[in-house]
């Protein structure tokens, strides 16, 4: 029953750019691509977040990913096809440097969150400080390689980017799903509930936490690369630091981190909200989006701890539950 629905949804997503979208076609496509890219990042974040590993510094991995490919392209013209693994490697290495001491010496909960918060800022400040080659706070533009250049992953046609983002997003979901079915998930759940108990029954706590952190960081870096390739403009404020890190967290908490589509749904809602506010109020009410964000976030945490998508899903399942009980004996 679920499978045909999923296939239908996928097909719809795949042909979406070719649907008659009206005069705002390009804008709609642009927003859709942003949602997919940030959906990847949100999914990556929730890999850790759902086990109580709250990172407030995922911007660092995003920035490391984006800047690595962009700088290598701008200075030496190396194709992002070749440098993306490098970008992922750099983010993973950074996660290792951060994660290993934290997990080995039991920096958990709020303290871990604070350490990651600092990491995001450190990367942002580093990018700004190294202005000679990173462009500093003014940002950096990806060197133009023409309107259609697969080698440079640069396309003027948004539809191509849409498909690329969709593909990577699906890979992200697949990773999430694999983790969800694995022994790693049970181990991390146990660790999240009681780290000492988990260690006492022989779960290698450090190893499992580190593994999921590296995975999350790597996937986030892919999101960063994609972002850079699509927008062709990088800025330390958008790709590292507290602001973007918290935005990722907010989207995931809003959508729900315990479900496959939760992070993406949350991302879609936050992007839609900020785009709407931007269009509706323009620059008149500059702080409005953040205020509404904050308010909604508090409400969600209090009333829907599993997130909007997760919470609604639970509600629907509960509604459907009596029917299931009746059917159960035959099946």
């Amino acid at each position: 029953m679920k499978r045909p629905l999923a296939i239908l949804g996928l097909a719809l997503l795949a042909v979406f750019p070719w649907l008659p979208l009206g005069p705002a076609r390009l804008y709609i496509l642009h927003v859709a691509i942003l949602i997919l890219i940030w959906g990847i990042v949100g999914t990556a974040w929730s890999l850790m977040g759902r086990f109580g590993l709250v990172s407030l510094g995922h911007g660092a991995f995003l920035g490391v990913g984006a800047y690595t490919t962009t700088l290598l392209w701008n200075f030496w013209g190396i194709s992002p096809w070749l440098t993306t693994p490098l970008a992922v490697g750099a983010a993973v290495l950074l996660a290792l440097v951060l994660g290993y001491p934290c997990f080995r010496f039991r920096v958990v909960g709020h303290y871990f969150a604070l350490v990651t918060l600092a990491l995001g800022e450190v990367i942002r400040l580093l990018i700004i400080a190294e202005r000679d080659w990173t462009g500093g706070s003014l940002g950096l533009t990806l060197k133009d390689a023409g309107a259609f250049n697969p080698w440079a992953i640069q396309f003027a046609d948004k539809r191509i980017f849409y498909l690329i983002a969709l593909g990577v997003w699906l890979v992200g979901l697949w990773v999430w799903w694999r983790v969800d079915r694995s022994m790693t998930r049970s181990a991390l759940e146990a660790i999240g509930e009681d780290e000492t108990a988990a260690a006492s029954i022989g779960i290698p706590v450090t190893r499992f936490k580190l593994r999921i952190t590296l995975l999350s960081a790597g996937l986030t870096a892919v999101g960063g690369v994609l972002y850079a390739q699509y927008l062709t403009y990088l800025n330390p404020g958008v790709l590292a630091g507290i602001g973007v890190s918290l935005q990722i967290v907010f989207a995931v908490v809003l959508g729900g981190m315990y479900t496959l589509l939760g992070p993406t749904v949350g991302t879609a809602l936050t992007i839609a909200l900020s785009e709407y506010l931007r269009v509706a109020f323009g620059v008149k009410l500059l702080g409005m989006a953040d205020t509404i964000y904050g308010l909604v976030l508090i409400l969600i945490i209090i009333f829907l701890p599993a997130g909007l998508y997760g919470g609604l899903k639970e509600l629907v399942l509960r509604r459907a539950a009596p029917a299931r009980v009746v059917r159960a004996p035959s099946g």
Partner: peptide
């Protein structure tokens, strides 16, 4: 120090 939110069987599995 059992894992309260996991089921009995999941707890044993973790052991």
């Amino acid at each position: 120090r059992i894992f309260p939110r996991l089921t009995v069987e999941e707890n044993l599995k973790m052991g």
